[in-house]
Amino acid sequence: MIDKMHTISMLLDGLMTDKITPELFEHLVELGAFEFNPEEADYLRRELNKQLKVVHQLEAVPVGEDVPLASHGVPYTADIRPGLREDVWDPCENPAEILAQAPQVEDGYIIVPDIPHTKLD
Protein backbone atom coordinates (compact mmCIF):
# COMPACT_ATOMS: atom_id res chain seq x y z
CA MET A 1 0.00 0.00 0.00
CA ILE A 2 2.75 2.48 0.95
CA ASP A 3 4.65 1.60 -2.26
CA LYS A 4 1.60 2.25 -4.38
CA MET A 5 1.00 5.53 -2.56
CA HIS A 6 4.64 6.48 -3.08
CA THR A 7 4.30 5.94 -6.81
CA ILE A 8 1.20 8.08 -7.00
CA SER A 9 2.81 10.79 -4.91
CA MET A 10 5.88 10.84 -7.16
CA LEU A 11 3.72 11.01 -10.26
CA LEU A 12 1.92 13.97 -8.73
CA ASP A 13 5.24 15.80 -8.85
CA GLY A 14 5.11 15.88 -12.61
CA LEU A 15 1.41 16.50 -13.10
CA MET A 16 0.04 19.81 -14.34
CA THR A 17 1.73 23.16 -14.42
CA ASP A 18 2.95 24.59 -11.15
CA LYS A 19 0.41 27.00 -9.71
CA ILE A 20 2.97 28.46 -7.37
CA THR A 21 5.67 29.92 -9.59
CA PRO A 22 9.04 31.00 -8.18
CA GLU A 23 7.81 34.61 -8.29
CA LEU A 24 4.60 33.85 -6.40
CA PHE A 25 6.60 31.78 -3.94
CA GLU A 26 8.88 34.74 -3.23
CA HIS A 27 5.81 36.87 -2.58
CA LEU A 28 4.46 34.31 -0.07
CA VAL A 29 7.85 34.14 1.63
CA GLU A 30 7.80 37.92 2.07
CA LEU A 31 4.24 37.86 3.44
CA GLY A 32 5.10 35.03 5.81
CA ALA A 33 8.18 36.90 7.07
CA PHE A 34 10.61 34.10 6.19
CA GLU A 35 13.85 33.70 4.30
CA PHE A 36 15.09 30.45 2.74
CA ASN A 37 18.18 29.01 1.16
CA PRO A 38 17.68 27.64 -2.39
CA GLU A 39 17.44 24.03 -1.23
CA GLU A 40 14.68 24.79 1.30
CA ALA A 41 12.86 26.97 -1.23
CA ASP A 42 12.91 24.16 -3.82
CA TYR A 43 11.52 21.64 -1.36
CA LEU A 44 8.80 23.95 -0.08
CA ARG A 45 7.64 25.08 -3.51
CA ARG A 46 7.55 21.50 -4.78
CA GLU A 47 5.48 20.33 -1.81
CA LEU A 48 3.12 23.31 -2.09
CA ASN A 49 2.41 22.51 -5.71
CA LYS A 50 1.86 18.84 -4.91
CA GLN A 51 -0.60 19.73 -2.16
CA LEU A 52 -2.46 22.07 -4.50
CA LYS A 53 -2.90 19.24 -6.98
CA VAL A 54 -4.68 17.27 -4.27
CA VAL A 55 -6.71 20.34 -3.33
CA HIS A 56 -7.92 20.57 -6.92
CA GLN A 57 -10.10 17.53 -6.26
CA LEU A 58 -12.43 19.98 -4.56
CA GLU A 59 -13.19 21.65 -7.87
CA ALA A 60 -14.90 18.50 -9.10
CA VAL A 61 -17.10 18.16 -6.01
CA PRO A 62 -20.73 18.85 -6.89
CA VAL A 63 -21.32 21.56 -4.27
CA GLY A 64 -24.93 22.75 -4.31
CA GLU A 65 -25.59 26.48 -4.18
CA ASP A 66 -27.45 26.11 -0.91
CA VAL A 67 -24.62 24.27 0.88
CA PRO A 68 -23.55 26.49 3.80
CA LEU A 69 -19.97 27.28 4.77
CA ALA A 70 -19.01 25.29 7.88
CA SER A 71 -16.47 27.19 9.94
CA HIS A 72 -16.78 24.39 12.49
CA GLY A 73 -18.44 20.98 12.56
CA VAL A 74 -20.59 20.96 15.70
CA PRO A 75 -23.45 23.49 15.47
CA TYR A 76 -22.98 25.96 18.33
CA THR A 77 -26.57 26.47 19.32
CA ALA A 78 -27.34 28.86 22.17
CA ASP A 79 -28.14 26.01 24.57
CA ILE A 80 -24.61 24.57 24.48
CA ARG A 81 -22.71 27.82 24.09
CA PRO A 82 -21.38 29.68 27.09
CA GLY A 83 -22.69 33.24 27.29
CA LEU A 84 -20.41 36.19 26.78
CA ARG A 85 -18.29 36.81 29.84
CA GLU A 86 -18.87 39.84 32.00
CA ASP A 87 -17.06 42.90 30.71
CA VAL A 88 -14.99 43.34 33.84
CA TRP A 89 -11.32 43.99 34.32
CA ASP A 90 -9.49 40.80 35.30
CA PRO A 91 -5.87 41.81 35.75
CA CYS A 92 -3.02 39.38 35.20
CA GLU A 93 -1.79 38.26 38.60
CA ASN A 94 1.88 38.47 37.71
CA PRO A 95 2.73 40.55 34.62
CA ALA A 96 6.44 40.34 35.47
CA GLU A 97 6.26 36.59 34.84
CA ILE A 98 4.85 37.24 31.36
CA LEU A 99 7.41 39.93 30.57
CA ALA A 100 10.19 37.62 31.73
CA GLN A 101 9.55 35.54 28.60
CA ALA A 102 10.39 38.44 26.26
CA PRO A 103 13.91 38.39 24.80
CA GLN A 104 14.48 42.10 25.55
CA VAL A 105 12.69 44.20 28.17
CA GLU A 106 13.38 47.65 29.61
CA ASP A 107 11.37 49.36 32.35
CA GLY A 108 8.45 47.02 31.79
CA TYR A 109 8.44 47.55 28.01
CA ILE A 110 9.30 44.99 25.34
CA ILE A 111 12.13 46.32 23.17
CA VAL A 112 12.20 45.89 19.39
CA PRO A 113 14.68 47.24 16.84
CA ASP A 114 13.86 50.18 14.58
CA ILE A 115 10.62 49.93 12.68
CA PRO A 116 11.13 51.03 9.07
CA HIS A 117 9.24 54.29 8.64
CA THR A 118 8.95 57.40 6.53
CA LYS A 119 8.88 60.87 8.04
CA LEU A 120 6.08 63.03 6.72
CA ASP A 121 6.60 66.76 6.46
Binding site: F34, E35, D114
Partner: peptide, 24 residues
Protein backbone atom coordinates in the same frame (compact mmCIF):
# COMPACT_ATOMS: atom_id res chain seq x y z
CA UNK B 1 18.83 46.14 11.84
CA UNK B 2 15.10 46.57 11.75
CA UNK B 3 11.93 44.85 12.90
CA UNK B 4 11.00 42.98 9.70
CA UNK B 5 14.49 41.55 9.53
CA UNK B 6 14.17 40.40 13.14
CA UNK B 7 10.89 38.66 12.26
CA UNK B 8 12.31 37.02 9.14
CA UNK B 9 15.45 35.71 10.77
CA UNK B 10 13.75 34.56 13.98
CA UNK B 11 11.03 32.71 12.06
CA UNK B 12 13.40 31.26 9.46
CA UNK B 13 15.72 29.91 12.16
CA UNK B 14 13.03 29.00 14.70
CA UNK B 15 10.49 27.08 12.61
CA UNK B 16 11.18 23.74 10.95
CA UNK B 17 10.13 22.99 7.37
CA UNK B 18 6.67 21.56 8.15
CA UNK B 19 5.35 24.66 9.97
CA UNK B 20 6.80 26.82 7.19
CA UNK B 21 5.03 24.73 4.59
CA UNK B 22 1.72 25.10 6.41
CA UNK B 23 2.07 28.84 6.86
CA UNK B 24 2.88 29.39 3.18
Amino acid sequence: HELRELYRKSRAEGFGLQPKLRIL
